[in-house]
Write a protein that binds this DNA or RNA. Sequence first.
RNA 1: GGCGCUUUCGUCUAGUGGUCUAGGACGUCACCUUCUCAAGGUGAAUAUCACGGGUUCGAAUCCCGUAAGCGCUACCA
Length: 473
Amino acid sequence: MVRVRIAPSPTGYPHIGTIFQALINYAIAKNAKPQGKFIVRIEDTDRTRFVEGAEEKIYEALDWFNLTEDESPRRRREGDYGPYRQSEKLEIYQERAQWLVDHGKAYYCFCTPEELDTMRKKQQLEGKSPMYNRTCRDLDPKKAAERAKKEPHVIRMRIIYGGAILKIHDDIRGDIEFKKDLIDDQVILKSDEFPTYHLAVVVDDHDMKITHVVRGEEWISSTPKHVLLYQYFGWNPPSFGSVKSGFVVLHTPLLRNPDGSKLSKRHGHAAVSWYKEQGFLPEAILNYLASLVYNYPKGEIFSLGDFVDSFDRTKIHSVGARFDLTKLKWMNGEHIRMMDNKTLKIALADFYKDDLEIIKFLESEESLKILDLAKTRMKTLKDFKNLVIPTKPELSNEEKNVAKTLLENFSKIDSWTKEAILSAMRETLNVHKAKGSVLYKIATGYESGLPLPDSLEILGKEKAIERIKKSSE
RNA sequence: GGCGCUUUCGUCUAGUGGUCUAGGACGUCACCUUCUCAAGGUGAAUAUCACGGGUUCGAAUCCCGUAAGCGCUACCA
C-alpha cells in the first residue's frame, strides 16, 4: 500500500509551501489503487526554532484545505507506526546512532562550533568546499567512547568510500550522480542528543513504512547521505515499488516569488493565513497550486477530487513556478461563480464573522438574491463588502441636482419594480445628459456596483429613497 | 568558489524528429452586450523555443559545450 508523508516543522505559521507538499502527497496517496495513506509527521527536532502552538496551526490549515491526513500525532490509532512527533522518539534515534557508532559507520566528534567555524572560513578562503576536516574521525574508538561520557559531543556519519559515484533516481529528473568524496561527514546526533533531519528522516521513513519519498527540490543535495544511511542500516529504501532501482525519490519544484527566488516571507504571501484574510477560497488556492505542478488535461478550473482522479506523478513539472496572484484571483472568482448561493453564504458568513453589518445583511431574506448579482463581480470574498454596504459619497453641486431629479422620479413610482426603477433612472440621465456611473455614486457611494434596478427593487422604495436623500444632503 | 537542479509568449504551460510560419490559460487591447462595474461572447497583439556548436533530408524535440536563474554547501529543516 502506498504510504506518503509530509513532515512540517512547528517553527512558525503554516506556510503555503507545506500545503503545496501536502496537496501533492495527498494526491499520490488518494490516486493509488488501493488508496494509500497520507501521513503527517511533526519534525520538532530543532528546539531553538520551536514555536508553541505551531503544530495545531498546521492541522487547522490542513483541515481548512480539506487535506485531512490518515495518520498523525493527533489521529493515532492502534496499529499505527508512531510516535509521529520526533521529540517523542529521541531514544530510538539515540539507539540507532549508537548502533552506527558501534559498527564503525559513525563516530564521536568533539570539535566545538568555534573550531568548525574557523575551519570552514579557512577552507573558503582557499577556494575549497567547506566540509568537516575529519579531525575526530580516526580517534581511538575506545578512548573516544570514554571521552563521550563526560564531554559534549556530536555523532557524525562516516562517509565510506568505495565506488566513486553515488547514483540516485529521481522520479521526475531521472538519474542524478554525486561524487562520494564531496559528501560531508554529516552530524546525525546533535550535542543536545536530538537527531538532525538526516538521521530522523531515514529512521522515520523506515519505521513508518513510507513507500514514496516526495519532498521539495531543496533536498536533492542531501539525498546521497540518506542513501548511505539506508545502506549502513541494511534497510530497503523507499523505492516507489521498484526494488531494482534502489532509492527512488521524487523532488518537487519549489514555489517562487515573482522575482524567481524561493517563496519567502518578504513577499508576504507565504503564510496560509494571508490567503484566508484576503478572502481566497481554499479550493481555489488548491486549484492554483495544482496547476503549477501538473497540467490538468480538461481545462484550467478543477476541484480537488478531479485533480486527485486525474493525477499522474510522473507528469509533475520540474520547473519552479513563480507565484502569480493575478491568476489566483481570477481562479478564485471562477470558484466563487461555481458555488451555489447557500455555500457562498456560509463562506461569507465565516469570512465576515466579526463584521456585524455584513452578518446582519446575510441574515436578511433578500441576501440570497443579492448573491446572484454579486457573484460575477467578486474575485475574493473581500470584494463583497463594498458591493453590498454603501458609503456616503462626496457629491458636487451638479451631482446633487441629479440626485434631486432621481428622487423626484423615484417618488413618482407606484409599483416599485426594477423596470420602473430603470425607466426612472433613464429619464434622470436624459434630463441631465449624465452617465450611469453618477447614479451609482449617488446610490452607493461608489461609481460602480451591483445593478441598481435589481438591488434597489430588493431594497424597497422607502429605504432606497431614504438612502439617496441621505447621500445628497 | 564547489556540487546539483532548471531553461518555450510578461506569467503558468502544450509539445517526446516532419501535422509548429509553435497551441491553450492568466494578464493586456479592441469590439459586441449595456443603467455603472463586472461576468459572458468575438477578435487582436505578444515566443528568432536561453545562447553556440554538432547529428539528421529535416530539431523546440537527440548530443556536446556555454550562460543565466534557483537550490544546497549548519550541532535549521
